[in-house]
Design a binder for these strands. Structure first.
Lengths: 200, 200
DNA sequence: TTATGAACCTACCGACCGGTAAGTTGTGGA
DNA sequence: TCCACAACTTACCGGTCGGTAGGTTCATAA
């Protein structure tokens, strides 16, 4: 079954916002990507802000689905955390996009929050804190310590997920491939160390 | 001695680019910040791109200075690495700005074609790889493994450094202060674990 | 048969963008 | 005294921005 125009527009918006940021993309760009005019886009989403909001909403929904899936599949808290986090660093363009949008939102939401006023990141962060707190070695840790750990994990993962073009540009394709080949293993090691408990 | 107009403009540009990104700031905004017109700015920096380039150049220069300073002060490679990295999470607005610019550059430098900016990041990353490789436990590690470690450290640090407004917004000032109180310790723990050697 | 509403369109608006052109003003040296 | 030059200014350019106004086309329901 064919995608609706509305869904095509959401997809195009996700890709372009991830690549260039909210202020780097015009609604005409997005509409043009699906072969229509910007007024067609404004027919479906009354403002650019609302379109952006729906894109973020979709992504946050997607994270919830993945998390529920992981919780149902894995039984050990450490496995749950690792599988959930490693899913973000997969080579799929969809995952890269999500990481980029997440990071851009982090940089820009202060400026935009005045009008939008919605913290799309909140649920996502709180879910992760919950997953860390479920680890045996973290049972006695404070909320703040768990959040600090979440942030370090998230940072390590998303910083890398976002950097492919830059790293290829700086070091060349060969060195990037070599890096990519070892990154996941180093990251698993990091997750294992975090799972061993907070630093005291 | 008073700052020159040119330096005032560079300062204003650094602040605004960090906050809103290259495409989110106009040269008129920057010039306005120092009470002049955009043509005054264009008199000193012939294009917006060149102004941005100088801002990045300054920052990369600043990192070099800090690094030289740390290498001269600390003798143990692990101390050198830790002091250098922790300097980036300091609560100074200047450090936050640098982290934001670094992250934005990472997200955008692919698009800003020609991309002189790539090279500013290159030196910085290579310096860090060198510092990790200097650790005893990393003597036999590959270049790619050291780069992976650098990236995880950098990600953990900059993701957090950039997030203050967001975290305050999501969790409130109290929880943010609590997080901030434990973050540095958790980060030191992370650096210590990295210094213990690559995961195999 | 008519009419209603979704899904598009062209035309246009005022604001702003980066950048050019052509001054004006003040200062310091020959 | 004259002149060159740095440091600005106003005026303007073509282009893009998000958004509005007011259509047209077409399927479906009354």
């Amino acid at each position: 079954m064919a995608q609706t125009t509305r869904d095509q527009m959401l997809d195009a918006a996700k890709t372009l916002f991830a690549e260039r940021g909210f202020y780097g993309v015009s609604i005409a760009n997005i509409a043009g990507e699906v072969g229509l005019t910007k007024q067609a886009l404004l027919h479906h989403f009354s403002t650019k802000e609302k379109l952006y909001g729906e894109v973020l909403e979709n992504i946050s929904q997607r994270f919830k689905v993945v998390r529920a899936d992981v919780l149902a599949t894995e039984t050990e808290p450490e496995d749950q955390l690792r599988v959930y986090l490693l899913a973000m660093v997969s080579r799929s363009p969809q995952d890269t996009m999500r990481s980029r949008l997440l990071m851009r939102e982090l940089l820009d939401n202060k400026r935009r929050a005045g009008s939008a006023g919605v913290w799309y990141l909140k649920d996502f962060l709180e879910d992760l804190v919950e997953m860390v707190s479920a680890l045996k070695a973290w049972r006695d840790a404070s909320d703040a310590e768990a959040l600090a750990a979440v942030y370090q994990l998230l940072g390590a993962i998303n910083y890398y997920a976002v950097s492919e073009p830059t790293l290829r540009g700086i070091f060349g394709d060969d060195r990037y491939e070599a890096l990519d080949a070892v990154f996941t293993e180093q990251l698993s090691g990091f997750i294992r160390k975090v799972a061993a408990g907070p630093s005291r």
